Computed example of a mutant assay.
Amino acid sequence: MPRPTAFPRSRRLKRRRLIRPLFERDRTDVQRVRAGTVVLLTRTVPRADTGHDVGLQVGFAPGRRRTNALRTQVRRHLRETFRLHQEALLGRFGDRPDALTVMVLFRGRDADAGAAIRRDLPRALARLADADLQVADRPLSTPDAPPETRPS
């Protein structure tokens, strides 16, 4: 049985076709949850589209920083704080037929990133756990469907 504070690779959001829709502004199925310097972009998708049998996949975007070292440091703070406060989301999406995809964004200053993330990310996760999230109504892609073409 996995530990409740573990963050295995299967829970990491890596597929572009799952990440890209989170950042499209005109989508109505993406929910935003903001708490201070942290923004969560969320969307429910059919579990089969994640590639793993997990109810939650999470990605981390530290934003543009001056150096790669700062980006790495902010990303580590985001991952660690999420790992410690993920229980509510895991409990809610463990048995559902769909999966929650979450992108965690940090929009604060570099100087106080660690303290701001430890303060704001748990609040954002609590708000997300209490939100009314709808089950996805269709898969992202079907293997038998022809690719969509754009009109010229």
Rank of each mutant, 00 (worst) to 15 (best):
A126N: 05
V135A: 15
F82D: 04
A88Q: 13
V74H: 01
Q73L: 14
R11M: 15
L128C: 07
A61T: 09
H77M: 02
A145R: 15
G36F: 07
A136Y: 06
R65W: 06
G59M: 04
T42R: 04
R17Y: 14
D29Y: 03
Q86W: 03
T28W: 00
A145S: 13
E87F: 07
P8Y: 11
R15V: 03
F106S: 02
H85P: 10
D120G: 12
P46R: 11
D26Q: 14
R109M: 09
A69R: 14
T101N: 09
R20G: 02
R138E: 15
T44P: 05
L105V: 11
I117V: 14
V74Q: 02
R118P: 01
L84V: 05
R71T: 00
T44W: 03
E87A: 15
V45I: 10
D49R: 03
D130Y: 01
R32Y: 08
Q86S: 07
T28P: 00
R109W: 03
R20A: 14
R12C: 06
L41C: 00
E24V: 08
F93C: 10
F7Q: 01
R9N: 12
A35W: 06
V58I: 13
L89K: 08
D98F: 12
T42F: 02
Q31A: 08
A35Q: 11
H85L: 05
P139W: 00
V135Q: 13
R76W: 08
R64E: 13
D144C: 08
A35S: 15
A113H: 06
L105T: 12
T67D: 11
P46Y: 04
F60W: 07
L41K: 02
R127E: 04
T50G: 12
G63M: 13
R66Q: 10
E80A: 01
R119N: 13
R118H: 05
M103Y: 02
A115T: 10
L89V: 08
D112Q: 14
G59W: 04
L78D: 00
R71L: 00
G91E: 15
A61Y: 06
Q57C: 08
Q134A: 14
P146N: 09
L128N: 02
L70S: 14
V54D: 07
R65G: 07
R17D: 13
A48D: 14
A145K: 09
R109F: 05
L18A: 04
P122C: 04
F60V: 08
L105S: 06
A88K: 09
A131K: 12
R9E: 13
E87M: 09
L128F: 00
V135D: 14
A126R: 12
R47F: 00
H52Q: 11
L13T: 07
R16H: 13
A115W: 06
R79H: 12
D144H: 15
G51W: 03
M103T: 06
A111V: 14
V45L: 07
V135M: 11
G36A: 07
V39N: 03
D120W: 13
R127V: 01
D144R: 10
D110E: 15
K14W: 01
G94P: 02
V104Y: 03
P122V: 08
G108A: 09
F23K: 10
V74T: 12
L18V: 04
D98E: 12
L100H: 07
V104T: 08
R92V: 04
L84W: 05
L18P: 01
L18Y: 02
T37Y: 02
V38E: 02
K14A: 11
R47E: 00
T42D: 01
A35I: 09
A111E: 15
G51D: 08
G63T: 09
R79F: 09
V30W: 07
